[in-house]
Design a protein around this nucleic acid. Structure first.
Lengths: 120, 120
DNA sequence: CCGATATGTCACCTTCCGGTGACTTATAAG
DNA sequence: CTTATAAGTCACCGGAAGGTGACATATCGG
């Protein structure tokens, strides 16, 4: 997966309405654009732009059926990221994570550990 | 994990320079801002803005040590998303994925099945 | 103190994003 | 044909993102 493809996927996911669209398409696979619009207060053009972002990230695929466009959620890009994370962060997931969580969540800005005690 | 926290995490990850910063901090935990800047062609202010985005997503934590600011990668938000995906997409990961991959990767825009075949 | 280094802050610019309305095209239905 | 519906395209606007330089602040070293 190339870097700009990752950009597109993460950017697409970085928006609550777009994540919601994915939920809708999971529940109603093959529904059309108007149907998706029905779940939102924003206008149709805005929804179509969100769909365009999702399609360019390959998180949504569509096919034209008559005058409608039918939409499906595509889990493949998310699965690829998931797989990558499995290997990329396996060290952290096992054991090292506990220490990090201690360091990071309990001691946000603990000034104390400056340099070698060279304080003056 | 709240929705706007997700927004922040995904938005932070939707940028190659910011993902690269995470890689740097994994390899050099505790390094300072200038050190990170050394890996980039863009200016220091731009790097600091990227760091601010990462910190606001809680993907990076820092502590002030003298005149320096030391930086660490925080895997916790990624781990939370990973865990969520495990449950959220487990249906797709198992079996249903194969069918989707067929449908989606071999037939990107298969206009052919529009009206004739009544999809299912 | 004084100079050098590391970082923080501010104003500014350009580009992209998310939203809008107006209009066009394509299909369905009569 | 006509009319209604689904979708696509275009221009526009406000605000946020990503970059810059100039300047301010804090710390280290002598």
């Amino acid at each position: 997966m190339k870097s700009d493809e990752m950009d597109a996927v993460f950017a697409a996911l970085a928006s609550e309405p777009r994540r919601r669209i994915l939920d809708i398409l999971k529940k109603e696979p093959g529904c059309n654009v108007s149907r998706v619009c029905g779940f939102f207060d924003i206008g149709r053009i805005a929804v179509m732009k969100h769909l365009a972002a999702l399609e360019s990230a390959n998180l949504v695929v569509s096919e034209k059926a008559g005058r409608e466009r039918r939409l499906w959620f595509n889990p493949v890009p998310i699965h690829m990221i998931y797989d990558r994370w499995t290997t990329e962060f396996s060290d952290y997931w096992a054991g090292r994570l506990a220490r990090m969580k201690y360091r990071l969540e309990n001691a946000p800005v603990p000034l104390a550990r400056a340099k070698g005690g060279a304080r003056g």
